[in-house]
Amino acid sequence: MRIGVLALQGDFAAHAARLSRLGAEPVEVRYARQLKEVEGLVLPGGESTTNLILLESEGLWDALQRFARTRPVLGTCAGAILLARKVSNPSQPSLGAVDITIERNAYGRQVDSSIRWVDPEPEFAARTATGPLEAVFIRAPIIRATGPDVDVLLRDGADPILVEQGPHLAATFHAELTGDTRLHELFLEKVRSNRAAGGDC
């Protein structure tokens, strides 16, 4: 199963390594044409402004929006910001594939970054495995509002940190920097079921 990892900037290598370990074939995506060759796409952590600028200047923006209409996308941290419907602090363009409002750098600066353990919502545990999950927050955003079609799969206190809408997943933390493979397993499962459904979401 070929899974793209947007590789303009960020921790794309960590995502690619995780996907390999789970038996998928990661493809570093830097050109719009490569999106035709992959069944799902990971938008990694990194700087969302840098990624936005390169997506627009290198002609990937429209291709990415088309891709997200039929194929699953997993966004982590900066990737979740790209997937959101609305972005604040500051406001900036986004793909709008997941109906969430997200606030950038919402915990503060790097000294406010943290690693926390969260108990999965029952649905996440049922679809993956039970047990607490280690979540790495680095200059992380907070999801401030979720639309009616969005399911919350993980929370840290009251804040949603993993949400699902249709084929897409958006996480505010970095699962790729821990030993826990559940988020990527869940994403690969969604790619398989999307394939079974003929890619028509």
């Binding site: 960020g10 794309f12 840098t50 941290c77």
Partner: peptide, 18 residues
Amino acid sequence: TDEFRLKVGLAEQLKGGV
């Protein structure tokens, strides 16, 4: 240590950048 992982974690996010 969590603290060192967070420090390296930010560096990871800057990869491929200027």
